[in-house]
Write a protein that binds this DNA or RNA. Sequence first.
DNA 1: GCCGTTTTCGGCCCGACTGTTTTCAGTCG
Length: 588
Amino acid sequence: MENIEIAVALDEMADLLEIKGGENPFRIRAYRNAVLTVQDHATPLRALVERGDDLTELPAIGADMAGHITELVRTGRLTRLDELAAEVPRSLVTLTRLPGVGPKRARKLWDELDVTTIDELEAAAKAGDVAELAGFGEKTQTKILAAIERYRKRQGRYRLNEADVLVAPLLEWLRRSKAVEDVQVAGSYRRRRETIGDIDLLVMSSHPAAVIEHFLSYGPIRDVIKQGDNGASVHLANDLQVDMRVLDEDTFGAALVYFTGSKEHNIELRQRALERGLSVSEYGVFELAGEGEESVTSTTGRELGKRVAGRTEEEVYAILELPWIPPEMREHRGEIAAAAEGQLPALIALDEIRGDLQMHSTWSDGKNTIEEMLEACAARGYQYFALTDHSQALAMTGGLDAEKLARQLDEIDEIASRHPEIRFLRSMEVDILADGSLDMDDESLERLDLVVISIHSKFDLTRAQQTKRMTRAIEHPLTDIVGHPTGRIIGRRDPIELDLAEVLDCAAENHVAMELNAHPNRLDLRDAELMEAKKRGVPIVISTDAHHVDELGLMVYGVEQARRAWLTPDDVLNARPLDELLKVLGRG
DNA sequence: GCCGTTTTCGGCCCGACTGTTTTCAGTCG
């Protein structure tokens, strides 16, 4: 039983309790909070259960949740969930994934129309039965049908680089309007999560109508979802949803905090505000109560109180006695406590990266020559870089055997001698074979400055086999870095089965670094895993795995992922001078 | 169901939009 399976079970509990109805909403939230804890925990809770550790030490885990987790680990089942599923069909949860359908409506569809699946809902809507239900109507029925179509078309989320391509021209378009004073993207996009569901745009302006008109005239918009006096939501032609809101300068900072999230981070901020007699909303920070005092009114005429902050994010955090917290950290992982204690880490920044330690050339499956890659690295201002073509096991990539490597090293020496501006690290991405041995003889490996090892085959070994394979490879005395350690490809391939804790301990012991592969399709290790690596003293390198000079620019995605893991320049080897890097890897 | 330097019981974040309504429920973020 993996953490993700435990999280899924607890999340389903929350969903079913909500659909069942009549439940204490805070009980449901307790399950959601527990889900966050479980899925963020980098080591398997299974191990804690087996050791008999006290699970209630974990945040949001009390006696009941500890019992649930223990039962799931020991039996693979959750009695309470089975009981609940006997009362409420599990498939109703899928209905709530449709925008516009929440727990109440899912329940009603089931009660009144005996609908339990998307297919049944579609049939009922097409027959016109949905519109007949009290509280539904014609428009809701049409929206549900559109939502079903959309759901079938695109179930996944967008990767960050996909979103970046869509967001940049939209921002450019908005800035063309004179009414737009400032525009920021909030949401999970600003927190730089590895995938995002939609785009939240915040525009500062005192002329909302003009901004909305300009926004809605953006070419790639396919349809308008909703429109108000202060914003609009649309789908772009490729289906990505964009929510745009217009704010004045007095509320912009508060709105930026609010719409950046995460939701859990905001809830904690509000609790902190209440302890200080303050209330936080997207309109600002307000003093509670206060008889006859001047009060700000919301766009819908709500009395909010006396505003004491809201122009900038810094102002909002400051009045809560906190320093500004970087968006990447706003995930409810203890960042508010750390901020309150003055313990926020100085997160790594892109310009602190001094070199790239994984890339390919035309010698294997890269698209550029060695010299082109070198010049591109030098142009980025790097002090060093490692060329890491594939080994022979990857025949399809033109991987190098010992003889070909020897010829490549001759060429490298010649090129390096003409380029004193950057230090050329002779390296290779050596395949880890199924038994944990390396796909290159030791004599050849000894000629290299750095050895990167990776798994590219046999992804389906058992957990025990995969762990043994990996630790054996790490223990090889010439190994320096493990490339894309879990092998996952976002949305396409699951990570390999691995006892990550054991692998990390082994790496720490052998002075072997873990790669954070910066490619937005991989981002491997993930944020929570990086935090675990740091905790265990394993050095991290951020590499692009570039197969083209342009891909060297993907470094930014790796740095953002590192920031989400609270990493500082000290934690990232390739943010250090070369002599320090080599020393940590035992080559000093 | 969780949690606690004012609490082991009584709290638990805040507001807008839509569609269906005649004052509001449901959903979303």
